[in-house]
Simulated scan of single mutants.
Amino acid sequence: MSSTTSTQVEIKAGFGRTLIVGAVAGVIGSLVMAMFAMMAAATYQHTGFFTPLYHIGSLLLDPSTMMASMEQGMAGSNFYFVFGPAVVGALIHMMVGAMYGVLFAVIVRMAKLRGMMLLLAGMIYGAVVFAVSAWVGLPLAATIFSAGDPITNMASMVGYPTFLVEHIMFGVATAFALLPFTRNRSA
């Protein structure tokens, strides 16, 4: 095998690893984001701990579980739980997190970000993901899946400040998960 071909194989293998590492980092970021969203929903929003999962799940499912959870939360019962819609919401959230994680890992690799610059980039990336999600991704997904207002208006329903903080936490957690892989430049 020539040295050029060997280098091309190494680059492709490195890029493939970047995609996998990015997906895993994005799932980790989505889990951190979800935990904050769920704590916010159970505390100062008074809408119920599992409501964020049902809200996301309403992309594919009837929003009645989300509404029931919100009603229970407002009545003081924070832990209304329905397995199916919770799992659907969690899976959708982690899949979207994986997608955004892959994109971020590619950016990190191309820009050769490391250390504090990587974490700062994660914070900025989270803010960008917030804007893209709130004003493009969610309305588009609502149209494609005929999901209506719960998805179209998710950012305003959650509250823009909380939605922004959730996404910044996603970006920072994703960046933090990528840190070990940037030391030897494989992500």
Rank of each mutant, 00 (worst) to 15 (best):
P139I: 00
K12T: 12
P63V: 00
N78E: 12
P63A: 06
G84L: 15
S64G: 06
A155M: 07
T43W: 14
V9D: 08
K112Y: 04
V21P: 02
Y160Q: 04
S133E: 08
A175W: 01
T51G: 09
M67E: 08
A121R: 02
M95P: 03
A37P: 03
A127Q: 04
G97V: 01
F81Q: 09
G14T: 05
G101T: 06
P52R: 06
F50V: 05
M70K: 12
A37H: 07
A40F: 00
A86E: 08
M33R: 13
M154F: 00
A68N: 06
V158R: 02
H55M: 14
S69I: 11
V27D: 09
L19A: 12
S69H: 06
G84F: 15
A134Q: 02
G26I: 11
V158S: 02
I92V: 03
V165T: 12
T143V: 07
R17N: 09
A34K: 07
S64K: 11
F36H: 01
V129S: 01
G76N: 01
G16R: 08
A86R: 04
N153A: 00
S69Y: 06
I11R: 12
S58W: 00
A41C: 03
G148P: 02
S77F: 09
D62P: 01
L19E: 03
V27C: 10
L179G: 09
Y54C: 09
M123T: 11
M94R: 04
K12L: 15
A134T: 02
V24R: 07
G137L: 11
Y125K: 01
L19Y: 14
L178S: 04
M66C: 04
A68I: 07
W135H: 13
L59M: 05
H46G: 06
K112T: 02
M169Q: 06
T18F: 13
M123F: 12
I107A: 15
F181M: 08
A175E: 02
A41L: 08
V102I: 15
S2I: 05
W135L: 10
T51M: 14
V108D: 05
T182R: 04
G14F: 13
M39V: 09
I56F: 04
F79R: 03
V24A: 13
T174D: 07
G76D: 12
A175Q: 03
H55D: 15
A86L: 10
R114W: 07
V9F: 13
M94L: 15
T162D: 07
E166R: 04
S6Q: 14
V21M: 09
T174M: 14
F83Y: 14
L179R: 13
I28W: 05
H93E: 03
G73K: 05
G101V: 09
L53R: 05
T143W: 14
V128K: 03
T51Y: 14
L164K: 00
L31S: 02
G137E: 11
L178D: 02
H46K: 11
V32L: 05
Q45I: 10
K12V: 15
T174L: 08
L178F: 09
A127T: 07
T43Y: 09
S6T: 12
M95C: 13
S186T: 12
Y160G: 00
F50S: 07
A173W: 11
G148M: 01
A42I: 05
I56D: 02
